Measured scan of single mutants.
Amino acid sequence: MAAGGDHGSPDSYRSPLASRYASPEMCFVFSDRYKFRTWRQLWLWLAEAEQTLGLPITDEQIQEMKSNLENIDFKMAAEEEKRLRHDVMAHVHTFGHCCPKAAGIIHLGATSCYVGDNTDLIILRNALDLLLPKLARVISRLADFAKERASLPTLGFTHFQPAQLTTVGKRCCLWIQDLCMDLQNLKRVRDDLRFRGVKGTTGTQASFLQLFEGDDHKVEQLDKMVTEKAGFKRAFIITGQTYTRKVDIEVLSVLASLGASVHKICTDIRLLANLKEMEEPFEKQQIGSSAMPYKRNPMRSERCCSLARHLMTLVMDPLQTASVQWFERTLDDSANRRICLAEAFLTADTILNTLQNISEGLVVYPKVIERRIRQELPFMATENIIMAMVKAGGSRQDCHEKIRVLSQQAASVVKQEGGDNDLIERIQVDAYFSPIHSQLDHLLDPSSFTGRASQQVQRFLEEEVYPLLKPYESVMKVKAELCL
């Protein structure tokens, strides 16, 4: 049975990233139509530049190519590739079939990587351009969430054990800070992308030097003109047959890092959902379990974690691919890159769409948070109580021993009897502590235990987050809708 299948058929496997999760716009960027249309555009740009620099290419040939950029006979191309065992030459023939007058000058002087690699770089750039505003929107939604809850005390956790208090907004800023680093890295790697350009079979530009009869300047002009037509500021000066596969490492490393950030955020949300302090959106008709109707599973956060793990592992592909590119190139890269580049971007696209949807509907339960604080705060307040007693004339050592005994009794009630923490009640009825009984409410005010959390939130948002989001103001209103 021949390899390949009808990918629109229910009898043929289709990647869930495309069929179930990723956005239509990201799927289109990695589609065959987008790819092969870009090949034709690159052939047109090459012909236009070659004509401008004096090669015998007519206006009629150029116009014929322009008129057929979208006229792609995919069936013919597939048949040609089956016959020739070469995808680029299959599309040269297919393009030439609908451009008979231009057929002889299509791909003039070029090698397969002229269309293959340059198209990949265009796709990487455009895919990054799709991700950047999506990530900015996630940051914006979380920034709104953090600002609104900047002063809401909550129990902090280290080692997932109760620690000092923080605020809900401050905790959210930990998430935002990681995503801001990801946004900066995505922008950097996007701006650092260079075009492969017009380089020939081993990167020496020998074929173009021959076409222009040894004119170095025209060869350099050709490279520059096509690079500018493709919208790049610069091209690699040095290439082998391909652009260095280190570029793929750079791009997928940034995406993998984004995956790590999203995994951490969504894990926190899942843990908070278990504590009943916070939940992701839950639709009115949504079913959490087929057997347990009360369940409210954090399905979206779980999906993000599941896909983020996949995204983090994909960076190993370009690392290994770059390491086995012998001399000017081997074909070890080809099949692998067809999979890992598309999957990385479709996965990143999915987790950003999902995280935006989550961040637009996060639900906080202040009463649950308050109750958990009441359970733990008495123990945390013991040092403040000791200091207040010393100020009232008591002995630190005597007070410490009193607190120690009462704390152990209260802990026994919590752990052995399943009761509430009654340390404060014990202190309130103990005559030894009568000098500070009137101060206990103040000493137990949760806001006095959150330090500068709310001020940190305000400063972080104003100095770091809002300036970073400013270039994306025009796209901030787009909502994230999930079908599944």
Rank of each mutant, 00 (worst) to 15 (best):
T58W: 09
F212Y: 05
M26K: 01
P24K: 14
H159D: 00
Q408N: 14
A308G: 12
K187L: 08
M387T: 14
L46C: 07
S151Q: 11
T450W: 08
V115T: 12
I237P: 07
E343M: 05
L152M: 11
Q456G: 05
E60L: 12
P100W: 09
G231P: 04
R337C: 05
D349S: 11
H7S: 12
E81N: 01
R171P: 03
V92I: 06
K295Q: 04
Q428L: 12
L362H: 08
L121N: 08
A49Y: 00
E463R: 10
E79K: 12
A2Y: 15
C340A: 14
D215G: 08
E48N: 05
L193V: 08
L55P: 04
P281N: 11
A348H: 03
D192R: 08
D73P: 11
S23L: 06
F74S: 13
K479E: 15
P281A: 10
E60W: 11
G4E: 15
A308V: 06
A22M: 13
D223K: 01
K82A: 14
C173N: 06
L165G: 01
C27W: 09
H400K: 06
F345C: 11
K367L: 05
G393Y: 08
Y294R: 02
F232D: 00
F28Y: 12
D445L: 12
K470W: 11
T158S: 12
K479V: 10
A256E: 15
G361T: 11
Q221H: 13
K82L: 14
W39C: 07
N297R: 03
L252H: 11
C266R: 08
A273D: 10
I105W: 01
A49E: 01
T227P: 04
A143G: 13
S257Q: 10
D144W: 12
R141L: 14
R459N: 14
H86W: 01
V189M: 12
C27R: 15
Y294H: 01
G5T: 15
K264S: 05
A2V: 04
T158N: 03
G361E: 15
G104T: 12
M181E: 08
D445T: 15
T38W: 02
K284G: 14
L53F: 05
V254F: 10
I105D: 06
A273P: 01
N297K: 01
M476H: 15
L331Q: 06
G109V: 00
A291K: 01
F28S: 08
H217D: 13
P435W: 03
H7R: 12
F30M: 13
T239I: 09
F345A: 11
E279S: 03
Y365L: 09
I287H: 00
H437Q: 10
N118E: 02
D117R: 01
R309L: 05
D317G: 14
S261P: 03
A291T: 03
